[in-house]
Design a protein around this nucleic acid. Structure first.
Ligand code: SF4
Ligand code: SF4
Lengths: 131, 131
DNA sequence: ATAATATAATACCCGTAAGTATTAATTTAT
DNA sequence: ATAAATTAATACTTACGGGTATTATATTAT
């Protein structure tokens, strides 16, 4: 629930591709492996392609391959491309503008889990899955 | 974005009440202080009342007061009453059933932020805001 | 050339969270 | 008693994330 369902899907897809280093992955084969609604999966693949994580080739024997080295693809970038990172970096209480001059009592309490989350997604790449 | 907007509202309300220990809070006064849509706020107050966090008295000079000592109200219980905790405790990748026998590469990576979050909400009470 | 097989684009539908509106019930000041 | 002030209940509306359907485009085997 930390991230949106679509972000989860994106991570599932790219994780699978990273771990099963085949020459190419068709939407069909990904559908067979991952538990994601087919049409939604296909649309997501197009999005991930436009975002530059993977590269598509159409037509017979078409499919997807990574467009960049795994070491350069951070989780944060994936999540950012799907749903944006702003909500994760802002106020935990959802205050548009911090209503108090000095950080409120809540701020400190949430600092740890918030930083742990940001730290994780900003320092982990798909290559780290192979370790 | 970790928690739903409604959970954020609930925390905002109860945090405000805890920090400004007045004898009683009317929906009107809470509306004036917190940036929450009025009608939605009123409905939420009724919900929080039914959940047993606060106690309502109707009629003229009515309003809300805490129904229990602050030390007994954990964040986890608040969030639980609004949106449930299951999504936070399950698979980070959103897999209904863990598809692999042994924990996948993702599992370990997310363990820290996930535990930090659960740890925080399960050990913090409204009373901790007063420290 | 044609048919088969793949991704791309676009528009639509659905369920749920968020927000609004209306009316009822309760208490108290006068 | 009556009116004012408050919460409660219920139903409706809106926005959006998630999901579906249809058609277009590209590639290649034959
Ligand atoms: S100090 Fe409080 S209101 Fe301001 S950003 Fe931190 S949690 Fe939000
Ligand atoms: S091992 Fe992987 S699939 Fe299983 S619960 Fe953990 S993250 Fe989810």
């Amino acid at each position: 629930m930390f991230i949106s369902k679509t972000s989860e899907y994106a991570l599932r897809i790219l994780t699978y591709m990273a771990l099963n280093n085949e020459t190419q992955f068709s939407a069909q084969s990904l559908y067979a492996e991952l538990d994601i609604p087919k049409r939604y999966l296909m649309r997501l693949l197009t999005d991930l392609s436009k975002s530059g994580f993977i590269k598509a080739t159409r037509g017979r024997n078409g499919g997807y391959v990574f467009a960049r080295p795994l070491e350069t693809i951070y989780f944060s970038e994936i999540i950012d491309s799907v749903e944006g990172l702003l909500p994760f970096e802002g106020c935990v209480l959802g205050n548009a503008v911090c209503p108090v001059d000095k950080p409120c009592a809540m701020h400190q309490i949430w600092e740890k889990p918030k930083q742990a989350f940001l730290e994780t997604i900003k320092t982990t790449t798909l290559a780290d899955l192979l370790l």
